[in-house]
Nucleic acid binder design. Structure first.
Lengths: 185, 185
DNA sequence: GCCCGCATGTAACTGGTTACATGATTGT
DNA sequence: ACAATCATGTAACCAGTTACATGCGGGC
């Protein structure tokens, strides 16, 4: 049960769409995978060097003097395919909001209410972003083929966000009586 | 924007319920926080030592020769309270399933379908576990007071699991036409 | 001429997992 | 007696973040 890093998958995956510089890979991951994936520069550049050494990507001088454009090789595509088919090991859950809700007896009910408000605002914000992404996908000609997959991940985000909204509504009620309240007559 | 470790919060939080050995803390976290939190032994024992040095917990010889029971101190409770009120920095998202769905064009549609099946099975499994937990909470006298909070976190898990189920249903349809299909006449 | 965005890289650090080693206690 | 569970700890390792250093090129 060894959890292997998925950074290679994310980087090769980005390059499977089109050749890019390291900087642009990072932006693509932030913009497109943003709601379900994250990579930092400190992770991307070493990874790119490793992938190149392994012959999975190749770099060619880019448009600028100091820039390189990375391209996925045939071996890289094959490797990506294989990695995508490996069994998935989900990372151990760590939800700081739920940790606080569980330990809610230690703090002021107001504080919990504030956290729920924040969670609701975040979820609404995400839904707005998703709506914008849907519109963008419809416009982008590049993603005519990949659009279905992209929309599927966006939809997952929407379902999650709506689940949060429903849960917040419900939880505000079940957690509202501040300790010594009585049942309605 | 420094992400500070929440391990102290989880450990102090467990001890805020009742005194326990390190081993039992880990089991309590797995059993009770399991669906939203995780800590390994390699994390718990050093943390306990640190917390004791800081006077936030104290250890007394336990029932067994080689065991200690840890207890939260007044300072520990105060520290926990303060930590719970700190702003929440969610960890960067990393959802390997959505990464695979997005990159689905690189692999066999069957493989994606298999992953969706797996996600569905996992969600159903979780729902069953939650039902069992709800029953257990109702029985547990210790959690008469904390039950509301516990149930709130369980409910969050249920909402998430149902969101997955809905998404899988929907996505099986939107992703089913294997490439060269035509619209219905 | 200056600022901003594009671009690359690395060093220090932290958080966390895994695996291993070891032994006590309890129940069957 | 034996197995399972309770219990503690550590060492090796890995993944990943953050901050820093540096420079090019285009637009205003």
């Amino acid at each position: 049960m060894k959890r292997t890093s998925q950074t290679d998958v994310a980087v090769l995956g980005a390059l499977s769409i089109e050749p890019m510089s390291g900087y642009r890979i990072r932006r693509a991951i932030a913009d497109v995978f943003g709601h379900f994936w994250y990579e930092s520069f400190g992770q991307i550049y070493p990874t790119l060097a490793r992938l190149e050494a392994a012959g999975l990507v190749l770099s060619r001088p880019g448009s600028r003097a100091n820039a390189s454009t990375y391209e996925i090789t045939a071996a890289g595509r094959e490797h990506l395919r294989a990695r995508l088919l490996e069994p998935i090991f989900p990372t151990p859950p760590r939800n700081p909001l739920l940790l606080r809700v569980f330990l809610g007896a230690n703090i002021d009910p107001e504080a919990i209410a504030g956290m729920l408000d924040q969670a609701e605002a975040d979820a609404r914000q995400r839904l707005a972003t998703f709506a914008a992404i849907r519109a963008a996908v419809a416009r982008e000609p590049l993603f005519a083929e990949l659009g279905r997959f992209w929309v599927a991940t966006v939809s997952a985000g929407e379902h999650q966000a709506r689940a949060v909204l429903d849960w917040v509504d419900e939880t505000r009620v079940t957690l509202s009586p501040p300790a010594g309240s009585v049942a309605p007559a």
